[in-house]
Simulated assay, not measured.
Amino acid sequence: MVSIVICHRDKKLLTQFKKNVKETIGSPFEFVIIDNKANDYNIFQAYNLGIEQSQFDIICFSHEDIIFHTQDWGKKVKKHFEDENTGMIGVVGGNAFPNCPSPWWNSNYLNDHLIHNIQHWKDGFTPQQSVNSQPYNNIKNCTLEYHNPTGENRIKAVAIDGFLMCAHKRALKKCKFDEKTFNGFHCYDTDICLQVGQTHNIYVVYDILIEHLSMGSVAREWAKAAEALADKWKDQLPFFAKEVDAQKIPRYQAKCLLTYCYWIKGMDMPDHEIKEIIRKYLNLNHRFVSQESLLLWLWSKLGYKLARIPYRLSKNLIN
């Protein structure tokens, strides 16, 4: 039996979602609808209320803008949790997370983007698509995304995307959505995954196909939450759900931090603030390990524009 928790904002989407679930789940379930049309809760508060109100051992935290394409998906979810070491499952995620502000889809240098979904994109947005991305059903700005590096039915992950996260209550006994550190609608998924991952395994599964009708946004509010997440977990990051070459970790983390700095630069964050962020998160013991770490170090000292000059002169010397 499955409790489906929704932080509800849109009546039309919820009606569509409930109809789709009833037609596809194939097992007993309940809806736990947290009415947030008046914006009374942040996502952390809403989901904690959902946990309190849920009756069943398996809880699916779901956005209301998804469509299940797999029949009897409730039975498949239940089957995954027969393994008592399994704490959470989702359909999209990553198996690496760095010690700096970052999303689950961070640099694929060490992070396998574990993906199996139908994704709708914003007009004018060009996604970094998965290996087997292909247009879906002639729908504009919609693709079938699939990346499975092992070919297995499920792959261990560090973090999963919040549009669908299924958890077993045994994994939530000592975990809750962190209302103290966060107060908005970002990083709730990664933070709860990092909590659950301390005691249970997290997986991206490939036997449930979902259509996601929107894409997330990376803006100032997300950046603020991402930094709070990195600060909260700084003594334990990075995390990997697979074996990695330890010598590659410094470059991986520099790549993630550089990407983050480009993003916040695109959000018109002042350069002096970005310099402070680099100083905070860059491991200076590895500043010359890679082109990315060199550019970050120069950026932290000179600012972005001036850093580009010596960086261009030296980039051929460092691989």
Rank of each mutant, 00 (worst) to 15 (best):
residue 6 I to K: 10
residue 10 D to M: 03
residue 15 T to I: 11
residue 19 K to G: 01
residue 20 N to P: 03
residue 21 V to A: 04
residue 23 E to M: 04
residue 24 T to K: 15
residue 25 I to M: 06
residue 25 I to E: 00
residue 40 D to G: 15
residue 41 Y to N: 12
residue 43 I to H: 13
residue 44 F to P: 08
residue 48 N to C: 07
residue 48 N to F: 07
residue 49 L to Y: 14
residue 49 L to F: 11
residue 50 G to S: 01
residue 54 S to C: 10
residue 65 D to H: 10
residue 71 Q to R: 13
residue 71 Q to G: 11
residue 75 K to Q: 14
residue 75 K to L: 13
residue 76 K to M: 04
residue 77 V to F: 12
residue 77 V to N: 08
residue 81 F to M: 09
residue 83 D to P: 13
residue 85 N to V: 01
residue 85 N to Q: 14
residue 86 T to F: 08
residue 90 G to V: 07
residue 91 V to N: 11
residue 97 F to C: 01
residue 98 P to E: 02
residue 100 C to M: 03
residue 103 P to I: 00
residue 106 N to A: 13
residue 107 S to F: 01
residue 109 Y to W: 12
residue 114 L to M: 13
residue 115 I to K: 01
residue 128 Q to H: 10
residue 129 Q to K: 08
residue 132 N to I: 05
residue 132 N to H: 10
residue 134 Q to D: 09
residue 134 Q to K: 15
residue 134 Q to S: 13
residue 150 T to W: 07
residue 150 T to A: 09
residue 151 G to D: 02
residue 162 G to H: 06
residue 162 G to Q: 07
residue 164 L to K: 05
residue 167 A to F: 09
residue 170 R to F: 09
residue 175 C to W: 00
residue 184 G to T: 10
residue 186 H to W: 11
residue 194 L to C: 08
residue 202 I to G: 06
residue 204 V to W: 06
residue 206 Y to V: 11
residue 207 D to T: 10
residue 209 L to G: 08
residue 214 S to G: 12
residue 214 S to Y: 11
residue 223 A to W: 00
residue 223 A to D: 05
residue 230 A to K: 00
residue 239 F to M: 11
residue 240 F to D: 03
residue 241 A to P: 02
residue 245 D to E: 14
residue 246 A to M: 05
residue 246 A to F: 02
residue 247 Q to E: 14
residue 248 K to A: 04
residue 257 L to Y: 01
residue 262 Y to K: 14
residue 263 W to S: 06
residue 263 W to T: 11
residue 263 W to H: 12
residue 267 M to F: 05
residue 269 M to S: 03
residue 270 P to Q: 01
residue 282 L to Y: 05
residue 287 R to A: 13
residue 288 F to L: 15
residue 290 S to K: 08
residue 295 L to D: 07
residue 298 L to W: 01
residue 300 S to A: 13
residue 312 R to T: 07
residue 313 L to Q: 11
residue 315 K to W: 05
